[in-house]
Amino acid sequence: MTAPLDTDWAAVFDALGHRSAGPIGQGMEGVVHRLDGGLVGKAWTGPHGAGGRRLSRLSAFYEELAAQHLPFATPRIVARHEHRGTAVSIEHELSGTPLTEAHGLSDATVEEATATVVTALAGTEAGPAARALSALGEDTPLWAGHADWPTALAALVRRRAAAFHPVLAAAVPDFDTTLDRLLHRLERLTGRGARGGEAIVHGDICPENLLVDGAGRVTAVLDWGFFTTAGDNAFDASTAAGFRDMYGPEAARRDAALLRRFEALGHDRERLLIYRAAYAVAGANAYGADGKDGHFAWCAAALRRDDVRAALGLRGRAAD
């Protein structure tokens, strides 16, 4: 049982000894309040967040993350509580303005912020806490039963494809062939992050999750846990390029610009596109099972892209 969504969380935090200044955010995983003393409180009310086990894993991961000495701040949990079956965390407040709200920044500055985070994570070394995290709201850790990143990711892709096959197949006419080619490509991956030496993967590097100062420099990165794991930094490079602008009129141009930038930094273009397809299958139904939301449409469109299809060894344009 979890606390109802209309719980007076300000009163709950006050009872825990932390005066609330009011809510500052609410999303799929919970409600966040600003507290006194430079803290924030998060009630993990969402379908993927309730329960202490996941919060315990995240807390251990945050400590592992802090030991990487990244050039930006990351979350730290200072206390954990439970209220009527709902996990509650008390964390240090991270400074900065969400990149989506930092008006007046140039395209180049936003691109630089995204690249800064991806490049910094390339130098990390994932440990057991990163491997203990689950992805996309699953209960079982992504790495459970797997010895390396490609097989762990391929297994996730298989599970998600099986769970949401009807809507995926309806949106991508040759979905079964696409899936077979994708799994084959994933299982053949080699290199750092493929057969050992994994980096920490955030999995959701988007403007909403980056805090910046007035000049657009990254001060903190939020919302680890949606797809956070141990893996290949190229996965973050690929997805961050796409998440930079998913729905705007300049989305394709901005995506292409970041893909070119990451390729210039040493990432293989084909590998980036294979990971784009992997995310598209695994993440398509992250926000709804019926395939009627914008995120699903973005993922389905990615699987129909000519460059993605070519990276999977598919010829010709997918039918619409």
Results as ranks from 00 to 15, higher is better:
residue 6 D to E: 15
residue 6 D to Q: 13
residue 8 D to K: 09
residue 10 A to G: 15
residue 11 A to M: 07
residue 11 A to C: 03
residue 12 V to C: 04
residue 14 D to I: 02
residue 15 A to L: 07
residue 19 R to K: 13
residue 21 A to W: 09
residue 24 I to G: 00
residue 26 Q to R: 15
residue 28 M to T: 12
residue 36 D to W: 00
residue 38 G to W: 09
residue 39 L to H: 08
residue 46 G to N: 08
residue 47 P to E: 14
residue 47 P to A: 15
residue 53 R to S: 15
residue 55 L to A: 12
residue 59 S to L: 03
residue 61 F to Y: 11
residue 64 E to P: 00
residue 67 A to K: 12
residue 67 A to G: 11
residue 68 Q to D: 08
residue 69 H to E: 14
residue 70 L to I: 09
residue 71 P to M: 03
residue 76 R to D: 12
residue 81 H to P: 00
residue 81 H to Q: 05
residue 83 H to A: 10
residue 83 H to V: 10
residue 97 T to K: 08
residue 118 V to C: 05
residue 120 A to N: 04
residue 121 L to C: 06
residue 122 A to G: 12
residue 129 A to Q: 13
residue 134 S to F: 07
residue 134 S to T: 11
residue 140 T to C: 07
residue 144 A to G: 01
residue 146 H to G: 03
residue 148 D to Q: 07
residue 149 W to K: 03
residue 169 A to Y: 03
residue 169 A to R: 11
residue 170 A to C: 03
residue 183 L to G: 01
residue 186 L to C: 04
residue 186 L to A: 06
residue 186 L to G: 01
residue 187 E to T: 15
residue 189 L to Y: 02
residue 197 G to F: 06
residue 199 A to I: 06
residue 202 H to F: 05
residue 205 I to Q: 04
residue 209 N to G: 00
residue 211 L to G: 11
residue 211 L to A: 11
residue 215 A to T: 14
residue 216 G to R: 04
residue 219 T to G: 06
residue 236 D to V: 07
residue 236 D to G: 01
residue 236 D to H: 08
residue 243 F to W: 12
residue 244 R to S: 12
residue 246 M to G: 08
residue 247 Y to C: 01
residue 249 P to N: 04
residue 249 P to S: 06
residue 253 R to P: 09
residue 260 R to H: 13
residue 261 R to Y: 12
residue 264 A to C: 04
residue 268 D to M: 08
residue 271 R to Q: 15
residue 272 L to A: 01
residue 275 Y to S: 08
residue 282 A to D: 03
residue 283 G to Q: 00
residue 286 A to I: 08
residue 291 G to P: 11
residue 297 A to Y: 06
residue 298 W to R: 14
residue 302 A to Y: 04
residue 304 R to C: 15
residue 305 R to K: 10
residue 306 D to L: 13
residue 308 V to E: 04
residue 310 A to W: 10
